[in-house]
Design a protein around this nucleic acid. Structure first.
Lengths: 189, 189
DNA sequence: GTCTATAGCCCGATAGAC
DNA sequence: GTCTATCGGGCTATAGAC
């Protein structure tokens, strides 16, 4: 990233991410991506020679970087319930309190190339593994830890879908609030 | 539907549904819809003068009809837990054991027209209302009934997303198995 | 590194024969 | 009621000036 660029890398990625996130892979046209990124399509092809698939992979790489931050409390923390609360807080920022869709959901629709699908799959699995890890530290048996981690993943994704379909993001926030109990096996919900 | 048609109405709708369901609204092209329906695009325009939006609305109408059947046990039954089990069984057929996406999820992405969005929203709400109704009959207070119904909706949608993203439909089936306890407030999960 | 311009194809949609 | 043929425009992608 040493060479001068008239449009900031981060701004380009942010624009591409926003478009893929809200429209999905197949419905994101190059012109919509170009407009959101602030670059003409020819310039996008200069940065992403593989075209739309390359852009999607770069977006997923960037999302992976953001998730590394979101999940960091689960890896470095020592108080499982507090660590999950902190992860939930960072998730809330990432999803804008439930107003934004999950790129893992939207990007795996349409006719996304296999490489994009497997990338999204790996990212989801890493997220689940991190949540299973904190459940294990909270005292869960490996099978239970994996079960509640996948359950947490499904509940988060489902609450985002419900927030969009019902046009009411409140379900996402209450799901986040339930996560500490769910992942530490103090299931009250 | 008295006039002769060389291609069966049901087959056309089934093809359109399959395409919208797996690709979403924006990524479903007229050529893909045409191929799935078994009709040339000009013939599709004859049946659906409003174009793609008309086709999407017809698909949602058909889905509403199917949901009337899926939800029928909740309305006519007398044993809440058994009624939810029967609904879950019919849902499993509709979603092909978790291998098919939810048209309510995929159709509300992309640039779907407002009419399509509100149609999908109404269908989701009817589903939730039916589930809240059975929870009420199981003894839940109105607030609790609505809460668990929305929760059930979100869990079902989330398990379908998880099934797709993780390429493992088993989460959908275990979510269905949890529904009777969830909706009758015997929460063990 | 980004731009204008354009290639070639596919898009949604329509006209008119049968 | 479905077809072939076609319109204008948007699509992904590339060539070449600056």
């Amino acid at each position: 990233m040493a060479r001068p660029r008239t449009v900031d890398d981060g701004a380009v990625l942010a624009g591409l991410t926003a478009t893929f996130r809200s429209s999905g892979y197949g419905a994101s046209s190059l012109s919509s991506l170009s407009e959101a990124a602030g670059l003409r399509s020819a310039s996008l092809y200069h940065r992403f020679p593989g075209g739309k698939a390359d852009m999607a992979l770069a977006v997923l790489d960037d999302v992976a970087r953001q998730f590394a931050h979101i999940l960091e409390p689960l890896v470095t923390g020592s108080d499982p319930a507090a660590d999950v609360t902190e992860m939930a807080s960072r998730l809330s920022v990432f999803y804008s309190d439930g107003k934004l869709a999950c790129v893992l959901e939207t990007m795996t629709l349409d006719g996304a190339p296999d490489e994009v699908l497997s990338h999204a799959r790996g990212l989801s699995q890493a997220w689940i593994d991190a949540m299973a890890g904190v459940a294990t530290r909270a005292g869960a048996a490996p099978r239970d830890a994996d079960r509640v981690a996948v359950d947490a993943f499904a509940r988060i994704e489902g609450s985002l879908v419900a927030s969009r379909v019902l046009a009411d993001p409140s379900r996402f926030l209450s799901t986040l609030a339930d996560l500490p109990d769910l992942l530490t096996l103090r299931e009250t919900s």
